[in-house]
Lab assay of single mutants.
Amino acid sequence: NKFNKEMRNAYWEILHLPNLNEEQKNAFIQSLYDDPSQSANLLAEAKKLNDAQA
């Protein structure tokens, strides 16, 4: 299933973003579980936030 793979990839990438705190990571990961079809968008948002907090 495409979403499972996308979701897993997004999950791991978000988990390893160095500039997000636990609360931010948890919020993105919760959103992933709530709507796996948004994995790519959530990952993009997480990366933007990560870069902004660098």
Rank of each mutant, 00 (worst) to 15 (best):
N50I: 03
N19T: 10
L49M: 09
N50D: 13
E22L: 08
S31V: 06
S39F: 15
N21H: 12
K25D: 01
D34K: 10
K5I: 01
F28Y: 10
A27I: 10
Q53L: 12
A46Y: 03
Y11M: 13
F3A: 15
A44F: 14
K47Q: 06
S37H: 05
N4W: 15
E45L: 07
A27E: 11
S37R: 09
N26P: 03
M7V: 10
N1K: 11
Q38Y: 09
S37M: 14
A27H: 11
K47R: 13
N41A: 12
Q53M: 09
N1T: 02
L49T: 13
Y11K: 03
P36S: 04
S39L: 14
Q24L: 10
L20S: 00
S37Y: 10
Q30N: 10
D51Q: 12
D34H: 11
K48P: 01
L49Y: 09
N19F: 12
N4K: 01
Y11D: 01
P18R: 14
A54L: 08
N50P: 03
S31N: 07
Q30W: 07
M7S: 02
E23D: 07
E22D: 07
K48W: 08
L15W: 04
S37K: 12
F3R: 15
A40R: 06
S31K: 08
W12D: 03
F3D: 15
R8A: 14
A52L: 08
L43T: 07
Y33E: 03
N19V: 08
A10M: 04
A46L: 02
F3I: 15
N19H: 14
L42D: 06
D51I: 08
K47H: 10
L42R: 11
S31E: 14
A46F: 01
R8E: 15
L49V: 12
N41R: 10
A44N: 09
N21G: 08
N9S: 03
L17I: 03
A52N: 15
A46D: 00
S39W: 15
K2W: 15
L32A: 01
L42P: 03
Y11A: 08
K2S: 14
D51F: 11
